[in-house]
Amino acid sequence: MASLALPSLNSLPISRLHSQKAPSLNSSIPSISTSRHPCTAAPHPFQSGVIRMQAGEEDFELKQVRDMAAAKKRWDAMIREGKVKILTPKEAGYAIQLSNKPLLDVRPSSEREKAWVKGSSWVPVFEVDDKFDVGTVSRKVSTFMMGGWWSGVPTLSYNSQFLSKVEEKFPKDAELIVACQKGLRSLAACEILCNAGYKNLFWVQGGLEAAEEEDLAREGSQPLKFAGIGGLSEFLGWTDQQRTQAAREGWGYRLLYSARLVGVFVVADALFIGAQQVGRYLQDMRSH
């Protein structure tokens, strides 16, 4: 089996596949044309830098999409060949209760700290990237602009100690249930473990987000379904999980988020009025 291209499976595709759909910010950002008329002056150095950065980000994004497509083919083959077996969240709950099978949680800390399966072991395959080098900052900006502000999905990087940490906890013959929030990162983890010699792997299809409250014993401040949401969409209650919960809870739940939406508009209006007043004050100062 082809090995997983770990360094390339980082934040952009994974964040987008795990995020809520967000209104696009691209339409509000003016595009910079690289065409030049013979009589025009050469672009400003800053403008040239912006163009190069945009081209680099597009190349990086295209490479990530290709890597993800190749990884998906490998994962499908891995399941088809029986190297990894599929469990629903309910079946995983039965396996934990009746057979005492261990569950390996491979989610990043941003999701794990909200809710986790009782008794599960935690080794993130991708972790929140808290570095501030040039490459990381560029990815953070891209993730934010492409929907991170809406979904709250952070920039992630591969945890180079993932395999060694799992090997410290579990022998190669362990019957190991692997789970993440939506099922994508856990497939990547299964491939790593399979290539390392683990023979009894079980993948939780749909991830912990697909679990009902009665399926798995849960600890933490939120339902497992809510552990992967964040950003402005969570604050306003506009995620699929929250809308489903609102349908169950009734009007009280909906009024809470309606009040938050009104509050956002009030704050935005106040900031707009304040900016206008500052602008008038500065204009008066110049006229005097």
Rank of each mutant, 00 (worst) to 15 (best):
I229E: 14
S27E: 11
Y158L: 02
N26R: 12
K169V: 09
G207H: 13
F272H: 10
G228L: 06
T244N: 15
S19C: 03
Y257L: 01
R52L: 09
L9W: 00
F162A: 11
M1I: 03
G207P: 11
W149K: 00
H37T: 06
I51Y: 08
A196P: 11
S164E: 14
R286M: 09
E58C: 08
V137T: 02
R52C: 02
S233F: 04
T136Q: 07
A70W: 08
A174R: 06
R74F: 04
N10G: 10
K101V: 02
L187N: 11
L87D: 09
F162N: 06
A77T: 13
V50I: 12
C190L: 08
A259D: 06
W203A: 05
K199G: 05
W122L: 02
L261W: 05
Q241V: 15
V153D: 00
Y94L: 11
W75E: 13
Q242R: 05
T136N: 06
W116D: 01
V267M: 08
L25S: 15
L236M: 14
A115L: 04
N26T: 07
F170R: 04
P223I: 08
V128W: 00
F265R: 07
M145N: 06
R139P: 00
R139W: 04
A22Q: 10
R260I: 03
R218S: 15
N200M: 03
V278T: 13
S138W: 05
L261C: 03
C180V: 12
K169I: 14
E111H: 14
V137C: 05
W251K: 13
E234R: 13
T143K: 01
H288Y: 13
R112S: 00
E212K: 15
L255H: 09
S27L: 03
R254V: 13
Q97Y: 02
E167R: 12
A179Y: 01
